[in-house]
């Protein structure tokens, strides 16, 4: 498996799209930090990039890479290599590459300009989010043989997690606004890794706003060290769950 990771990395590090991604992230982070006089405002603008662009690029890049490597994966399957090792090898390779891109493009500027605990939470959330969407991309990829269909599924997943889920959640909140919903919301947030990542950063960033209103409940929960560990664990489940399903499918898949 290590060899496969090594060779995937060798291939991806020469990939122009990945390079473009790094440049995009760097430009937006340096740009946002330099345009805003206030560092914390730069970070909050960058949160949009973190919650929208990072998942989108992660899932699309991975899906496209998977389908472009389809024949190569076939060739690897024809070699005396275990299927699980092949898939996990490619997964780790893509994951490491995208994480590296994230840390160069966003990690570096955040550490340089911010360097506070908020910044670190920001980077931790971003890393987990990257891995979650790489996992989801593998799931989307093994579900179908057709590249267009695979990319379609990937886009739908992204759309669902960044927008549709929250929209439904807001409607549920409106519909049941007579009931105390905070605990339910905490539970529902576990169903969306993007929300979890956002909450983790937000609690460090907009702490005064969240302390008010009913935000106190979220803060009590996610602000405690138990809550943070809980949120991270759920994120890790979000990393592990799609890829393990993908693995099960891939093991029996007809290539």
């Amino acid at each position: 498996m290590n060899k496969i990771i090594k060779y995937v990395l060798h291939d991806i590090f020469r990939n122009r799209i990945l390079l473009a991604y790094v440049v995009l992230l760097s430009l937006s982070s340096f740009g946002l930090f330099m345009m805003n006089e206030d560092v914390s405002k730069g970070l909050s603008s960058l949160l949009t990039v973190l919650l929208i662009v990072v998942p989108l690029v992660s899932i699309l890049f991975t899906t496209i890479y998977f389908f472009n490597s389809y024949e190569f994966i076939e060739l690897l399957v024809a070699q005396p290599l275990k299927r699980s090792n092949i898939l996990l090898g490619v997964y780790a390779g893509v994951g490491i590459s995208l994480l590296a891109a994230f840390w160069i493009g966003i990690g570096l500027p955040v550490i340089i300009f911010d360097g506070t605990i908020v910044g670190w939470y920001f980077l931790l959330s971003g890393s987990l989010l990257t891995m979650v969407f790489v996992s989801l991309a593998f799931l989307a990829s093994v579900l179908t043989r057709d590249k267009t269909q695979g990319i379609g599924i990937a886009m739908l997943l992204w759309f669902y997690f960044t927008l549709v889920f929250d929209g439904i959640l807001l409607m549920v909140m409106f519909a049941f606004s007579d009931y105390p919903l905070e605990k339910l919301t905490i539970f529902l947030s576990c169903l969306n890794p993007v929300d979890l990542a956002r909450i983790m950063v937000l609690l460090k960033m907009d702490i005064s706003a969240l302390m008010g209103y009913t935000g106190a409940v979220f803060n009590q929960f996610f602000g405690s060290s138990f809550g943070i560990i809980f949120a991270m664990s759920v994120m890790l489940v979000w990393v592990a769950f799609p890829i393990s399903i993908a693995l099960r499918i891939f093991k029996r898949k007809n290539l």
């Binding site: 995937v8 060798h10 991806i12």
Partner: peptide
């Protein structure tokens, strides 16, 4: 094995 269509990692 020699496949019908051989595709390899683009950047290798």
């Amino acid at each position: 094995y020699m496949p019908q269509i051989g595709r390899y990692p683009d950047n290798m």
